[in-house]
Design a protein around this nucleic acid. Structure first.
Lengths: 211, 211, 211, 211
DNA sequence: CATGAATGAGACTTCATTCAT
DNA sequence: TATGAATGAAGTCTCATTCAT
């Protein structure tokens, strides 16, 4: 009926604006992006942005939360459904990398404007960000309990390194410090886990056979 | 003479302002810090800040460059003077960690406002930041050539992970996500290298003996 | 018929909105009240307000005029039908006080947003407000002509004082500066006239007997 | 010295802006007055207004408080130094009327934008406004205790009427509902007290002789 | 009659930078 | 060198009103 039609259209407009915000924030950075830029990019009137969102901040918050909750879910699922710690960490890293591959602009916004923006939105969303650290730490801790990971490195510490390594990798792609072609994504998924779990030093044949 | 005396005093004032800027930027963040806050913190007149610095940006640029060049030197020196890749990487990590331990406010500013601030100062200083990546990558590449590091992980990739891991660790300390007591710094220096080089998985006795 | 039924319903809706406007304007003040607040309070769609009213201003204008014309009538009638100036002034004061007692929200809106709002609606409705002054002044002037009121105070001047005294009294009630219980209304009606006519100073017995 | 000279000049600029604000607020009303109008009227740059004042509101608050505190003082003094209630009330009324005569624009702003603006600044300054009511009520109460004023009208009630009468009178002048020539001010001072104290009804000879 | 999405002008406030002493 | 007053551009958010169904 009419209400549904309107509701549907309204939701579309909201999405339209949100998607425009992704592009604009990715291109100019959140701070340099004016609300009018978002409106223009979306092809709507200035005021309409404020019809759907309370503030410029809210748009970014929503973009972050929307995506980050998927990440948290993905890690949880990986932890629940997979067996080896390598598989679990691989799934986590894989999700983040695939997120970037699938929508680089959104991930750029999330990483640059939120997770790395320690003084502004990073602070606001610290609890959610910490949830990711914690979920990774749990994977490590379980692996330690099972004798699969060494125990002289605390799980929290390891989680920090693992997460930091991935985020830095994406930052490198985002700012084109390191190459980012399709094959890079694929190899990165495997290598990031291989490196963190196996270390940079080569393992003797015996060790390799063992696994 | 008078000129020299003045010059001396002038240099002191400049330093006074720069040090005040560190405290203010660390406390409020660069963006929220007003030039007047810096002047007040330094106990000097508003306009004097502009006598010594061209702009608010310049203060941060200077703080960054001053410290970052020491870091680059430290890595170079480590590379030149030490033998094993572990020692070299350990010296690099150690320098960063000691920098934080020695002047946490300055390092907070550098990390939060520059190296993590990909959209603003991080972009400006990308060349210098990249030099650090490259120096680390060189250490890895040399180790690979010597057969001490595996070769299936590219040196650039490894450098990214290594740097990202350390930066994330410091970010965790800065925002109190992970504890930061004296013993943490000490153990962190050892563990960050041990983890990246040795990996999270335990090594068989044979492997351990080998080194 | 349908038309009439619709017309009837339409009129009801109009009234519904107007009554909602009274509550919203009284609660938040005209300036802070948004048209959407009125619509919500009335339980109708936003746009419907503009179907019945040309503008937000028009609603207030209508609320004022509707009530104020009754006041003007009441004063005229009192003047025409009563004899003594005390009775006439008492009827005028009584009507205003009873209006407030009967519908405090409407009177709050009229006084706060129109008659006291000298810079906005008070200016627009100055002619109608002046009619009330004039009607009171006429009562005074007639009383002077009849020797019942002193003549060294101009009728206009007296009317101003009389009206100002009552309005201030209501303002005090509205903002709870002075108490406003049922008995206060009753006594106020008598006292406001007694005070203005008789003065604050006590009259000798002879004078009292005289009336 | 220099500091004093600068201080002096600075204070002058502040005053310049405040005086410009009076004219602009009186002319256009506070709400319609833009900060840029004030700056332009003062002949200074936009930003300088915010160098001296925190907000547009603060300017009005300051204008009000500055003048109102004088009024409160004047009433207190009158109460302390004069004997008869008539003299005291006359001094209070006189001060208000003289304030208007001396600086009609400022008083217009104070009355229109504050004391009559019940929903905005009137509410903010209600405590201070109430102090004036209370001071007048005290004069009345004392007169009642001395047997000089009737006791069947409560002091608060009487104060309300007295204050309302004066404010209405000024409002009439401000909006030119009643004439406002020099002789009007003079006679008003006497008549407002005479009317409120003596009442509109003529007093018998005996009564008149008595005083 | 009814709905509520869409429009866009308008004003406050902030603050880096400049300038006159 | 030192002071702090002066400048003015820029951007967020509000909300009355209009319009398409």
């Amino acid at each position: 009926m009419a209400a549904s039609a309107n509701g549907g259209r309204a939701a579309e407009k909201r999405r339209l604006i949100l998607d425009a915000a992704i592009r604009v924030f990715a291109r100019q950075g959140f701070h340099s992006a004016r609300v009018s830029d978002v409106a223009e990019e979306a092809g709507v009137a200035y005021g309409l942005v404020y019809h759907y969102f309370d503030s410029k901040d809210q748009m970014l918050n929503e973009l972050f939360t929307e995506r980050w909750s998927l990440l948290l879910e993905a890690i949880s699922e990986a932890d629940a459904e997979l067996d080896s710690p390598r598989a679990k960490l691989g799934a986590a890293a894989g999700f983040i990398i695939e997120s970037y591959r699938h929508d680089p602009e959104l991930m750029k916004v999330i990483i640059v404007e939120v997770t790395r923006a320690a003084n502004s939105f990073g602070r606001t969303h610290l609890p959610e960000i910490r949830q990711a650290y914690d979920a990774i730490a749990k994977i490590v801790a379980d692996a330690q309990a099972d004798g699969e990971f060494r125990t002289d490195v605390s799980a929290d510490f390891a989680a920090m390194l693992f997460y930091g390594a991935i985020e830095q990798l994406l930052t490198g792609w985002i700012f084109e410090v390191v190459p980012a072609a399709d094959e890079d994504y694929e190899s990165a998924k495997a290598l990031v886990v291989e490196t963190i779990c196996g270390g940079l030093e080569p393992r003797p044949a015996a060790d390799r056979l063992a696994r």
